[in-house]
Structure formats: C-alpha cells, structure tokens
Design a protein around this nucleic acid. Sequence first.
DNA 1: GCCTGTTGCTACTATTTTCGTAGCGTGCAA
DNA 2: TTGCACGCTACGAAAATAGTAGCAACAGGC
Lengths: 119, 119
Amino acid sequence: MPSDSKPVARLGQPVRGSRSGQPIMVLFDLLSRRWAMGILWNLAGTPRTFRDLQDRCGSASPSVLNTRLKELRSVGLIENTAAGYALTKTGRDLFAHLEPLGDWAMHWVPTLPPEATED
Amino acid sequence: MPSDSKPVARLGQPVRGSRSGQPIMVLFDLLSRRWAMGILWNLAGTPRTFRDLQDRCGSASPSVLNTRLKELRSVGLIENTAAGYALTKTGRDLFAHLEPLGDWAMHWVPTLPPEATED
DNA sequence: GCCTGTTGCTACTATTTTCGTAGCGTGCAA
DNA sequence: TTGCACGCTACGAAAATAGTAGCAACAGGC
C-alpha cells in the first residue's frame, strides 16, 4: 500500500481553504480539525498505537482518527514507528508551544460557568 | 446509550461532546471549532466590528461567525463593546499563550512540501 | 421627510466533515 | 482450527460549516 502517496486530505484542499495567506492561519487550519490537537497532546512523551490513541481520544471514530493521523503525518508532525505513532522532532517542537495551554486550561476551566462545560 | 458517553458539552449550542474530562480537552474542543482561533488572533491588540472580523477571516460566513462569537462570549474570552468585539482580560491571557504559535508557524510553514499547503 | 448605503445579524438550503458501526485482513495464542 | 485483538477501510447518517438572501437600525445626502 502506498501509504503516503494517496490523495489524502490536502491541508487546504478539501474546502477548508480559508487562510488569508498568513502562516498562522495554515497552522490554525490544521490544528482546528477534529482531534488534531488531542492527538498531538496524547502523543507527547510516548508513542501510542492506533487503539491506544482511539481510547484516549474518547469518542474519536476510527475513520476520522485515521484521516487525521495521515494528515499530521503528511506535514511531518508525527510518524508511524514500530512502537506506534510518535511525534517527530518538529512535532515535539510544536508541542512545546502547545503545552503551556494545558496549564492555562487547568486554571481556566474551573472558572467557567457550569452550563458552559456541563459534563 | 452507554452512560459514559453522555450528551456532553454545550459550549454554545452545538453538541460537539468529546472530552475525556481533562481541562485541556475542554479548551481544545472550544478552540478547534472553525474560526475560533482566528477570531482570537484577529482580536488581539484592537477591538473589531463584526464586518471587520468577517473580512479578516476570509470566507467565514456570517452565521458561523456569529455562532462562534456567541460561544467565545459565553465563556468569557471576548466581549462586545461599543468599539466592537474585543478580548477580555481572560482572552488576552489566552492569546499570550497562542501568540508563540504565530512565530513558530512562520518558520514551519515554509518547510512544508508544497502539496500540503497548496492553495 | 425620502432615498441610498453600511452594519449587525438571522434564516434557510447546500456542501463538507465527522460520527457510528460493520467488516476485512493480519498476526497470534489456545 | 477456532477465537480474538489490532489496524484500518467503507459507507450511510448526523452534525457543522458555507453561501446567500434578507431584515431592522442607523447615517448621510437631498
């Protein structure tokens, strides 16, 4: 199987072409796809198998998870190793910028009105 | 329906329930909605009117933009002032953590294979 | 006053994305 | 061999977003 030569979701191709040309919009466009940030988050520190990732992403369906993994792989943020999916050097670099959001969220979420997060 | 997959998550009105309970997932869930990050980005520094925001977000349709603005307002990240929509203190705080991504993206995007960003 | 244009937004349908589940092929242990 | 878990694909259904039209409110200009 040509694992990387498939027509897999171009970053802007689908219809989600949106950016105003700024690089940040390219990144936002990628990260704002479902589960993209969650995948990066869960891959930080240790490689994970497809199943493992699926479990950790709660309700991610295998089809979307697979699509997202291909996309992230096609832009070089993750790779598929013998140990499972893992962040590449670039991916770890991006994660370093994402990580502070975790701490921020930990302080922020409890301040939300219950109806906004009601779980 | 299994009791562990509740109807979750009404941040605004939609039903994108997902998180695994971790605060970061609540934040990711919010930020990964279309235009959410772009709105925060464009609101940084100066308040903007609805129209202005719409222009800057390229193809954001007014209906989605309006929905997103309501959501962001309901969690206290932005507010509607006389001068237009603006980040709240909390919003500016979050933006401070988002901003480094802009620099990172500026270096990263040019390294992408053309077919990944092809517009 | 009336006309014209802009802004902020809602309503509605069309299109795209994501979900949910079934199922296939491989490997592996019983 | 049977059974089972994994990695993934297929496909119809549901949800989110796009795209466009349109309305009320306001600001000139006449």
